[in-house]
Design a protein around this nucleic acid. Structure first.
Lengths: 244, 244
DNA sequence: CGGGCGCTTGATAGGCCTCAACGTAAGTGG
DNA sequence: CCACTTACGTTGAGGCCTATCAAGCGCCCG
């Protein structure tokens, strides 16, 4: 039974660099210290200064910021295999909050363990840095979408990107995927109102492009959806620097 | 004559960690290989795969993405003392373009030099990583602004943030700063039309809050502007992990 | 069974866009 | 020195996209 069967992170990284058994073992040692979380109680609070980083193993979470007027903006979702809280650890105090969506299982990672692992296996360090850069690229693409795409294309792009990310860890395909988000989550992520999210979803469904219902995203016409979204997965696909 | 008088980057980092003369010397060695750029020709193209990272020494640049329909979204501006192209180097191919605004002087940094410097002085590595995390936090704040702030508050927030960044390298204060941007730059950064940018600027001016004219930003009522923007400089102010 | 949560739909309003025109200033070439 | 061009800024009119307010439905759960 290989490590990639246990850890979505190992599976994700393995898609871009062939990890040796030593490197895999080091990676798996980061997964000790398992913790569980439930919806409704934030894992990290905006402004909090003593908190850890985590590797998400099961379940989804979202990173968001609350504005003084009470509205919130979801910056990113994390799915199994993603790191969370890395930047906050470096800045010491978190600039955002992290909320579990449904039940979540994550491995707590101490900075010291991470640095130790990096020192041991530089290739692993490169792989994780690559993953972090990819996450940053996704945030940038998210920003572009909110700034310059209309609601339809924004939603389409979002659903496609999520699908591509999930496919990488074996949780989705071009047919669709399970998605625990509510329409309120979508609204807060896309900078829309929940009401408008509902209308946009209806339009996409009636046009025969994609259905989002009962926690399932089903692509009906992947290619036309890609066209509508102007979705270019280049920023996700890179075969990174890891082949060095 | 201290190194901080020569390098905005040294000045910025010095605000958060006392660099030894050895560390300063290492930092200055990264500044060899000077290059100049002029407005109108991108320093880096979206999709380009052979390019370097730079340390900005004089002048401003912006990082942006072009959408298939021709509109563009500016993701971030870089001012003297900022790194640029770091992520692109890691991902090997750039996911965005970089355009000089006016004349620009920058130091080309080879990955090998950077890694060498990091190996030599870990504290410097921490400082630069901290700066990169701070840049990422700014992109996130930018995303929040576009997603959840109206045009007035978005503009106010942007002008304030820029002022705070410039103050850190000695190029601005709470009174104002020199700003080479056009209203088109502001539009592409804030996700607005140039026409609307003009109207928003007029409103802010007529309310006696801030004037942006002839390449000068002048704050007339800093506190009221902060209130309008709900500007919280916490994410810029951190006395980072660098005191370790 | 009441109540909360998520989803759905309609009516209305407003923020921001688009189109269009014009002003100003600086640069270019004859 | 002037005609011409280009870049940037300014202002108005009209309209679309999306927000807001409001109401109702189905479902799960205590």
């Amino acid at each position: 039974m290989s490590a990639t069967e246990h850890s979505p992170l190992a599976r994700k990284l393995a898609a871009f660099v062939a990890l040796s058994s030593d490197e895999l073992a080091t990676l798996m040692r980061l997964h000790q210290r398992r913790r569980n979380f439930v919806a409704g109680r934030d894992m990290v609070h905006q402004g909090q200064s003593d908190h850890a980083a985590y590797i998400l193993e099961a379940g989804w979470v979202c990173s968001y910021k609350i504005l003084p007027d009470g509205t919130r903006q979801i910056v990113d979702f994390q799915i199994p295999g993603d790191f969370l809280g890395l930047r906050s650890v470096l800045l010491q105090t978190s600039d955002h909050s992290i909320e579990p969506i449904g039940e979540v299982q994550a491995a707590e990672v101490l900075v010291s363990d991470l640095l130790g692992a990096f020192a041991q296996t530089p290739r692993l360090a490169a792989a994780i840095l690559w993953a972090a850069s990819r996450d940053e690229a996704m945030v940038v693409e998210h920003l572009v979408g909110i700034g310059r795409r209309d609601a339809d294309s924004r939603m389409a792009h979002f659903l496609l990107e999520l699908g591509a990310r999930l496919a990488l860890v074996g949780l989705g395909s071009k047919a669709g995927y399970a998605c625990p988000l509510t329409q309120y989550h979508l609204a807060d992520a896309l900078g829309l109102s929940a009401v408008h999210v509902n209308r946009v979803l209806r339009q996409l469904r009636e046009k025969g492009l994609v259905t989002f219902r009962d926690g399932q995203v089903v692509f009906h016409d992947y290619d036309r959806l890609v066209a509508l979204a102007e979705f270019d997965p280049a920023y996700l696909d890179q075969t990174g620097p890891l082949l060095k």
